[in-house]
Structures are given as C-alpha cells and as structure tokens.
Write a protein that binds this DNA or RNA. Structure first.
Lengths: 208, 208
DNA sequence: AGTCAAACTGAACTGAACTCAGGTTGCTAG
DNA sequence: CTAGCAACCTGAGTTCAGTTCAGTTTGACT
C-alpha cells in the first residue's frame, strides 16, 4: 500500500527499466536512434542484451516509450502553465516559456521525439509497440488541440486577429520544436536567449 | 558533341539511376526510409536487388543523394528568387514563396530531408556516403548563411528591427520546413493557403 | 563478328535485432 | 528456516535486410 513510485507505475524494486530508459535517452539523443546499437544500451546498464527484452518488446518499443513519456510531460507542462490564465497574451507567453523550461535530459528527449516523429505515422506490427504509438499519436493531437484552443479563445476575445487557428497552431509548434534540432547546451547561444527570441516571434506571429 | 543530360552528370544511356531515385523518393517519402525495404525499390524499377549497388554504394548513399539534390534545388531556388531584389521585405517575401513553389515529388523530397536530417550529423563509414553527407551539410550551412544575410541586410538598411540574425534565420527556416512534416496534398488546407499564412508569419516575425 | 565497359545476376555472407530454453535471485508465506 | 515463485537474467541459436562476391549478359562502337 502506499509510497507513490516516481519512476513508473508497475516496477519491481530491482527493476532496471528506469536505468534502461535513461541510457537509451542518452544514446538515442546523442548518436541517434539508428546509429546506436541496442546492445550498447544493455552494456551501459550492465546487463546482457537479452535482458532488455524483459522490459521492452523491442528497440522500437523503448523508443516509442521515450517519445510518449516526453509528449506526456510536454502536455502536462502546457496545461499547468496556462490553466487559470485568462489573458490570451499572457497564456501564449506562459505556453512558450513552459516549452523551454526543460532539463538537459528533456532536451535530448525532445530531440529524439523530433528526429523520430515519422515512427508515429505507420502502424506497428507488435501489440505493445502499437499501444505506445497510439498513445503518442493521441498526445500529439491533444497538444495540437490545446494550442489551437488557446488561439481560438484569443481570437474570439479580440486579443488576436482572426486566422486559421489550427494551421497557425501547427506553425507555432513547428517553430518551437524546430529549436531542438539545432540547439546544443554547449553552443554559443544560451537557451534563455533563444527562448526570448522565439517568444517574441510567437507573439508577433499571433498578435499584430 | 552535344545534348545536355537533364537527369545527372555522368549517366550512360541505359542507366536506371534516375528511375531508382524516383522510386526511392516515392517509397522513402510515403512509407519512410527505415520502413521501406531496399529490395522493394529494386522491384519497382524492375531489377534485382544487387543491381542497385551498381548505382549506389548503399541504401544510405541513395538517401543522402536524394537529400543533397533537394538541398541543391532548394538553395538554387532561393538564390534565383532573391537575386537582384533590393527591397528587404520584397526579398523576404520572394524567399518564402520560393520555398513553397514545389512539385509533388519535391514535397516528398522535403519530407525525406526533414525526417532524416539526423543522418547529416554523424560521419559515415564509406567514402561515397561521406562525400554526399559533407556536400549536404555544406548546403545546409550555405542556406542558413543565405537567410542570415537576407536578414542582416534588412536590419542594416533599417527595414527590420535589429535582432540576432542567425538565430532568427534558423527560426524562419524551422517554421517553413516544419510545414512538410504535416502538409499533405490530400489534406483539407490547400498549399496556397498555408503559404499565405506562413508568409505572413515570417514577415511579422522579422519586421515589427 | 569482336571488344569492352556498363549493366546485371544468384548464391553466399554479415551483423544487429530478436527468440528460446532454461538458470539465478531474493522476497514472502508458512 | 526453507520452499515456492515471480521477477530477473543469460548463452546459444535464429532471422532477415543489407551487402559482397564471382562471375554472366547486353549492346554501342569499331
């Protein structure tokens, strides 16, 4: 009874699921999904390659799980940042800032998400993969709906000029997410600066 | 001696290189690079799998070639659209419009490019792959420079407020390119409409 | 009608993802 | 304490897409 698990819903005490996810995020994020050998993840965790299959049905299943987790976090953060915010401009600002309030590991996860979005398109052969894929797809759609709603409300309140809210939402999301393709913590532009620039861009795109 | 080859520089008369590229673009674009079997491309062209290796060193080599060709076309179109344009606002408009003046096959190529950009990051093992990768990488950088220059000129002429031109260029490119992730010719929003919306966004991002 | 390079092929190889048939570990109940 | 059992793990073997090999066919041009 009791004690909420921070890591995951149904993990035994000696489960290495979290460690595998962490290692996979590092490898998939740094080297890319295709470029990293599944066995390298096992090596990093300190188990044999076949032990991975105790936790994930396949390499793709692990990737899809990482993507779904990041989408979930991303959406929760949006909701938390914007809920109770009645002023559309303030809500938009908060949403953009929330999108950039990320840890280093989450930057990697956003990159992984970005680079492997194509996986969400086609159906998967195995059951558990397909379940994760569906969940991820629905999260994507609900995130798109969240942003669209934010815009629609602003437009109907007269805070934003009326435009195609859905397409504009996709544009905003595309702009924000595109940052994770090139941004590196070691790069010359600090994230705070990027955030300010993007935030300004988003506001000018929507208002004006 | 005569007759400029439209397809490629050094192709024999019975070469199937063009047909392979066309088939690969279709498959990689529709189903995704990983999801398409290299042998399926051979099947479509009507040759055995091993014949592919007469034209490309590997599946990845073919992909990199497709990406490089698209980057080349994309850059050429930018240059052609903006050269001689002295007004920065008009130049920006022309650049965005050029980015959306694409055929159906080119839409697929943009999608392929977008979905496999990660391949350009790490070095390739084989010689010819690495050559294509380098060429593609340099095209990416020169496209980024082109956009940055467009912005810098506009800023120094006072047509655009002064901002970090390079980061802003990356943002513009990210916004424009992100369209190819979700846009489908069969979708509900016609490309012309998307173009207008994105063009407006780009202008508001940069001017104002 | 012979030559040569371009174009092609079937059979074999490779390596990373994955399966199988069990073995080990450590918590829990009796 | 020890028996049971579920979670956890492993080495050996399988699969399959991509690739290499060792040649064979094709056709343009002498």
């Amino acid at each position: 009874m009791a004690g909420a698990k921070l890591v995951a819903p149904d993990e035994g005490p000696r489960s290495k699921r979290g460690a595998i996810l962490a290692a996979a995020i590092e490898y998939f994020g740094e080297a890319g999904y295709e470029a990293t050998k599944w066995s390298a993840v096992a090596g990093r965790v300190g188990i044999g390659q076949t032990a991975l299959y105790h936790y994930f049905e396949s390499k793709a299943h692990c990737l899809l799980t990482i993507m779904r987790l990041e989408l979930q976090r991303s959406r929760d953060q949006f909701v938390e940042a914007t809920e109770g915010e009645t002023d559309p401009v303030a809500a938009l600002r908060a949403a953009v800032r929330a999108a950039f309030a990320v840890s280093e590991a989450e930057i990697l996860q956003m990159r992984i998400l970005q680079n492997n979005m194509v996986l969400l398109a086609g159906p998967r052969a195995s059951q558990r993969e397909e379940t994760e894929r569906r969940a991820a797809r629905e999260l994507v759609q609900s995130i798109e709906r969240d942003w669209t709603r934010l815009l629609t409300q602003g437009m109907s309140q007269g805070a934003f000029p009326v435009r195609d809210a859905h397409t504009l939402a996709l544009a905003l999301l595309g702009l924000i997410i595109s940052v994770w393709r090139w941004y590196r913590p070691t790069g010359s532009t600090p994230l705070a600066e990027v955030q300010d620039l993007i935030e300004g861009c988003c506001l000018r795109m929507v208002t004006e």
